[in-house]
Every structure is written in C-alpha cells, then in structure tokens.
Amino acid sequence: MDTFLQQIINGLVQGAIYALVALGYTMVYGIMGLINFAHGEVVMLGTLIAITSITFLIKAGIAVPLAALIGISLSVLACMALGWSLERIAYRPLRHAPRLTPLITAIGMSIVLQNLAMMIWGRNYMIFPPLIEKTQFEVAGASFTNVQVIIVTVAALAMGGLLWLVYRTRLGMAMRATAQNPAVAGLMGVNANRVIASAFVIGSALGAVAGVMVGSYYEIAHYQMGFMLGLKAFTAAVLGGIGNLAGAMAGGVLLGLIEALGAGYIGDLTGGFLGSHYQDIFAFIVLIFVLMFRPSGLFGEKTGDRA
C-alpha cells in the first residue's frame, strides 16, 4: 500500500509539471488553433535564465528568498518578451498561410533557441540553486517533500488564475471572441493582434514559472530539457482536449499517473514483458484509445468538420 501511495504521489507531481507546461500550449491553441512547438524551449530558457540570475544574486550576497524572487521575476519577464517576439517573428506573418507553415517555423524557432542556449550556457548540465530548505514528510510509509507540495499548489493556482482570466475578465472575453471568430471579434472592437499577442505573453510567463518549478524539483537544467518536456506536455494537452484549460490540467495529471503506475505495475502484470522500458508508450497507448472513442480528447468540445 505504501508503494502504491508513493507511486500516486510520484505521478501527481510529475503530472502537475506536465500540466503547467500544457497550460501554455493550450492557451495559445485555444485562441489560434496553433501548436506552439517552441513552447518547450521557452520553458527551458525560463529555467536557465532563473539559474543564472539567482546564482549571480546569491553570490552577490543577496538573501536567498529575495534573490529567488528577483530571479524568478526576471525569468518571467524575459520569457514574456520572448513569447511576444516569437509571435511577431514566427507566427503573426503567417496567420493566413497554409496550416502547416507555422508548424515548420515553430520547429525552426525551436532549433534556433536550443542552439542559442547552447552557445550561451554551454553544453554542460547546470545545477539549479536550492530556493527553499527541503523538508521531507512521511505519510503512511510514503515520503514527499515541501517542494512537491509547492509544485502541485502552483499548478492548481495557475489553472485557477487562467480560468478566472479567460472567463471573468474583459481580456478573457476578447480572447474567447477571437477564438470563435477573429473577423467578427474585430468588428466588435476587439484588437485581435493584441489579444493573440497577450495569449502568447501569458503562455510564456506560465512557461517560465513551469521552468522554475521543473528546475527546483529536479535541481538540474540543460539546454535540451525543453524538448521531451514539451512533447509530453503536448500529449497531455491533447489527452485532455487541447484548447481546454481544465482539460490540460486533467490531461497532465492523468499522464503523470499513467506513467508512474504503468512503470510501477504493468511489468509485473505482464510477467515482465511490458516493463518500465515501455514507460514512454503507455501514455501514447492510452491516448490512442481515448481518441478512438472521444476524438477531441477527454474534455474537448467537438470540433467542427474543418481540418
């Protein structure tokens, strides 16, 4: 039982991380119907910028909490700027282009950002400075840390905040209107360009927060960390129904749980044949099954019949 509980905790935390990143994908997708393939790199840059600034500040003799606050804000600001420029450079000019074109620019940007990061931060793995004292709790034989609790809380808060933003504010209303029909929204006085840009900026800010969380959980960072993370988060977003905020959250947590429980139990259930070496595909198999019966994901609204 303690093993089971531990696996649930493992899955939950991993899932919260996927969910945080997935929210960024879904934010952009919900409005423009575009997969921002470079979002994983935004998360990576968020982590690396936070590492550099926090380490620098701590070395300069500033108290850790203050250094962390400044470092995180810096990283969030930098990622917001990055998100904004990504939209301007790689996506806005292509808004009326064939649907796959922005996908390719996104891949191109992703390669560019990765290599830039490699040139700036080098090829080595980096250590994320500890921001808070890690304390360990034990419940019924399963252990977890305060960092894990913070991650889950931040993910839940981020989702709540976004829901509030989209459904309770003027900007949110403009976003929903733009998602429905940009042209008509424009006629109603919504500045579609600004709304879309703000979606990118908010998504990227979330990416930076996710980056800091990932960094302080695993305590390492690397210029290639964004790719796998982005991929998993994207899977999570689709699982939950891409474009749906609650769906992204649910998809992320579900994906984390599937991976943890899959690695933990499927091996024994299949006599060792499908062991943890198949960990990465359990999620895909579940995804395929879900999509066979619900072609728009768990929480997705039925999309129209346009591809």
Partner: peptide, 18 residues
Amino acid sequence: RMLVFGLALVLVMRFKPA
C-alpha cells in the same frame, strides 16, 4: 551549423508560406 539551419527554416516559411 544548426543555428543557421533553424533560421533558414523560419525565413523560408516567413517569406514563402506555401
């Protein structure tokens, strides 16, 4: 090398979207 490659992808699609 890879940086130039990525930039090329972006630029081509930017100016020749189809």
